[in-house]
């Protein structure tokens, strides 16, 4: 499933993540991550993001994440929210 229109979800508040979802003309998944805990948790955050997109059957998008220390469940919820808003 592809993303049809841009969307966003979340906030820049502490323990939250602001996500933006855009259509990707390249036809694949591209994730751009900025995080206050990038060094410690980059891999974990990307793993959760990729798994969430897979679970939602998204095969193509640009996902931009500005993370303020969100836990896995918050990342998952915000991405799901952005996906639903983009459909």
């Amino acid at each position: 499933m592809d993303i049809n229109k841009p969307s966003q979800a979340g906030t820049l508040e502490s323990n939250d993540v602001y996500v933006q979802l855009l259509p990707n003309p390249n036809g694949n998944i591209e994730i751009k991550l900025k995080s206050i805990v990038y060094k410690q948790f980059k891999d974990q955050i990307l793993q959760v993001a990729n798994q969430t997109l897979k679970d939602l059957q998204i095969t193509s998008c640009v996902l931009i994440m500005d993370d303020q220390g969100a836990l896995d469940h918050t990342i998952k919820a915000r991405i799901e929210s952005a996906v639903k808003r983009s459909l």
């Binding site: 979800a9 979340g10 469940h73 918050t74 998952k76 919820a77 915000r78 799901e80 929210s81 639903k84």
Partner: peptide, 8 residues
């Protein structure tokens, strides 16, 4: 967004 966050 809130309902998804609370659910998760």
């Amino acid at each position: 967004s809130a309902r998804l966050l609370v659910k998760e």
